[in-house]
C-alpha cells in the first residue's frame, strides 16, 4: 500500500494534528516505511492460526452488579479547566 499527501492530511485530521505543507513529504515517507513493515507481517502465512485478541491466555473476570461508587463530583469537577452548575464546560461543540 502506498500513501499520498492527501492520505497523510486525512490521517492528520483524524488525529487532530495540524500538519504544515512542508512537513507532508517527510511524514509521508516515514509512514510509508511503517506500512512496509505491515507488508512484511501480511506476507506471513496465518492460515491455521486463530486471531489473537489479547496477548495473555486469560479470560475476563466479571464483577457483580453492585453500586460501589460514591459521589465524588466536587473533587472531580475541581480538576476541570471549567465547570458550572455541576457540568464540565468545554468549547461549544455544535454549530
Amino acid at each position: 500500500m502506498s500513501l499520498d499527501h492527501a492520505a497523510v492530511r486525512h490521517i492528520a485530521r483524524l488525529a487532530r494534528l495540524a500538519v504544515a505543507d512542508d512537513q507532508l513529504e517527510s511524514l509521508r515517507s516515514d509512514l510509508q516505511r511503517v506500512l512496509h513493515l505491515f507488508d512484511d507481517l501480511a506476507a506471513a502465512n496465518v492460515d491455521n492460526l486463530v486471531p489473537l485478541a489479547h496477548p495473555h491466555d486469560q479470560a475476563l473476570s466479571l464483577r457483580d452488579d453492585v453500586v460501589s461508587e460514591i459521589d465524588r463530583s466536587a473533587e472531580l469537577l475541581a480538576l476541570a479547566a471549567a465547570s458550572q452548575g455541576g457540568y464540565y464546560l468545554v468549547p461549544k461543540v455544535i454549530e
Binding site: G85, G86, Y87, L89, P91, K92, I94
Partner: peptide, 12 residues
C-alpha cells in the same frame, strides 16, 4: 448540554 450555557457546552 448545548442550550444552557453561553459559549460553551456542558458535559454530564
Amino acid at each position: 448540554v448545548h442550550d444552557a450555557f453561553h459559549a460553551e457546552t456542558g458535559i454530564d
